[in-house]
Design a protein around this nucleic acid. Structure first.
Length: 487
RNA sequence: GGUCUCUUGGCCGAGCGGUUAGGCACCGGUCUGCAAAACCGUCUACUCCAGUUCGAAUCUGGAAGAGACCUCCA
């Protein structure tokens, strides 16, 4: 069994071979915590959750590091030298760390509800200022940075001249960029407009600041990931992930920093998830068209026709391949919701199956198809397609048009446990510790209704059904008796 | 302007040279006191033009349209 992953560095699918098997180091750029998590955050969260889960599923020991950026980034338009968290803090009259703390918690809660597993380590940028300063020193010593008015800048021209590596990831041509770079604040301090800051001297109004030998200030925008990935995964690790929008300049700059500080590139494989679009356009803070995850869960956004559960969001995202753009719409989400429900029902129906002597189906074939799909660059869409076909088979078995023996039935059970639950991370949202109680209560009412129906008291029967419906409990009169679900 | 990507049926979305993707919707059927749900079945594709090939949604060239990055962004 061989896993192939698409490596952005080479623009093709490559056989996955960890540097130190069975260990795998996975680093993913986490959120900047100055706002509520939105649908865009769900995509990398879920994409790399799948990578994390699948690598473990096939036997690797994975250390998954996903950072929290709480140092903020520079605003580039107005507010010279003020970063996002500081700005928000000033507006709301809070400590910057209150803002960061608040949104970090919101982010983690949202990931939990999406059933995204916790990373092995979730380091915060502000907790690694020392490590970042150390890397700046290394780059200075190597001669690829210079000090200017209390700030430290990366010398891109020198880096390019010596290594010719700038652009390996993003295919950028440095010469072209120089001619098209727009004027930004502080350019006069730089040798070249394209140079990026490793350390930035804080302006008087800038409230997030740390001491350093250069100035009171804050670390540059790309440094945190270099510092934290090298600290926890080593100078060279297996997979670096993140959103496609981080490819340039963020990841390109990380490579440059690593090459200068450590003498080699940081990651063997680069994996990038694509964007979620809304009406064909990228969803983003600056565009004002983003919907927060909480708004999805509660339905409180003007573009949403109603609420969508976390599992619906997860399933919606998994139905597309991670490298494709995924377009949001109410119709698409409703379709995902119904599809997920169908799969869940099928999974539950497995329990109702009575095995036969003979079997007309072979589970191992389906199982192999799921492996093949995942081994081909994590094709979750294909796995789901296989599960749907299995759902049809399950229904046919119950219907009597297909047969399954005890051995295959056991494999069927494992199939859903493995792929639906473990790898795709889908879960039954209705399970809670109150369920046995609710189940008992509903069954009592169903019993009452059954009596009414036996007496042909349709009015009473319908009243019970309607009242349960108003509580969100849907009664289903099936061939094999009555069942119910919570809507 | 530069770099890159995409264009699949009513909607979403796989597909990487030959075989049904799948889901949702629609329609037909089964079931039902009625209804809903559920289940079964069926239909609608590959932006356009040219080329390579026995054979192309899939490869090549061209056209049109859309998007991403080049500025913080998942």
């Amino acid at each position: 069994m061989e896993l192939y992953v698409y490596n952005t560095l080479t623009r093709k699918k490559e056989l996955f071979e960890p540097i130190n098997p069975p260990h795998v180091g996975l680093y993913v750029c986490g959120p900047t915590v100055y706002g509520d998590p939105h649908l865009g955050h769900a995509r990398p969260g879920i994409t790399f959750d799948i990578v994390f889960r699948y690598l473990q599923f096939i036997g690797y020991k994975v250390r998954y590091v996903r950072n929290i950026t709480d140092v903020g980034h520079l605003e580039n338009d107005a507010d010279e030298g003020e970063d996002k968290i500081a700005k928000k803090a000033r507006l709301e009259e809070l400590e910057p760390m209150e803002i960061a703390q608040f949104y970090t918690k919101r982010f983690i809660n949202a990931m939990d509800s999406l059933n995204v597993l916790s990373p092995s380590i979730q380091p915060i940028a502000s907790g690694h200022i020392i490590e970042q300063i150390e890397i700046i020193k290394k780059i200075l010593d190597a001669g690829y940075a210079y000090i200017s008015e209390g700030s430290v800048y990366f010398d891109l021209m020198k880096y390019q001249k010596d290594t010719n590596k700038y652009g390996v990831l993003s295919n950028r041509v440095l010469e072209d960029m120089i001619s098209t770079t727009r004027a930004l604040d502080g350019q006069s301090e730089k040798k070249n407009a394209v140079d990026f800051a490793l350390w930035k001297k804080a302006q008087p109004e800038h409230i997030m600041r740390w001491p350093s030998i250069w100035s009171e200030g804050f670390p540059g925008w790309h440094l945190e990931c270099t510092a934290m990935s090298s600290k926890y995964l080593g100078e060279t690790f297996d997979i670096h992930g993140g959103g496609l929008d981080l490819l340039f300049p963020h990841h390109e700059s990380e490579i440059a920093q690593s090459v200068c500080a450590f003498g080699h590139e940081p990651a063997k494989y680069w994996i990038h998830n694509n964007m979620i679009t809304i009406g064909g356009q990228k969803m983003g803070k600056s565009l004002g068209n983003f919907i927060t995850l909480e708004e999805f869960f509660t339905g409180s956004h003007k573009m949403l026709e109603r609420a969508y559960s976390p599992m619906t969001i997860r399933f919606f995202i998994l139905q597309a391949h991670y490298r494709s753009t995924l377009d949001f719409s109410n119709d698409a989400l409703s379709a995902a919701e119904k599809g997920l429900k169908r799969l869940l029902e099928a999974k539950r129906n497995i329990k109702k199956i009575n095995p036969s002597k003979e079997t007309t189906i072979e589970i191992s074939t389906i199982n192999q198809k799921c492996y093949d799909a995942m081994n081909d660059d994590f094709n979750t869409s294909m796995v789901i397609s296989n599960l749907f076909e299995t759902a049809t088979i399950i229904n046919k078995i119950i219907d009597g048009s297909e047969k399954i023996n005890a051995k295959e039935l056991e494999e069927l059970n494992i199939l859903f446990e493995d792929w639906y639950t473990k790898v795709l991370g889908l879960q039954d949202e209705q399970s809670s510790n109150m369920m046995p109680t609710i189940d008992g209560l509903v069954k009592m009412i169903i019993e009452l209704r059954k009596e009414a129906r036996e007496n042909k008291d349709w009015a009473k029967s319908d009243e019970l059904r309607d009242q349960l419906a108003t509580l969100g409990v849907k009664i289903k009169d099936g061939k094999e008796g009555v069942s119910w679900t919570i809507e």
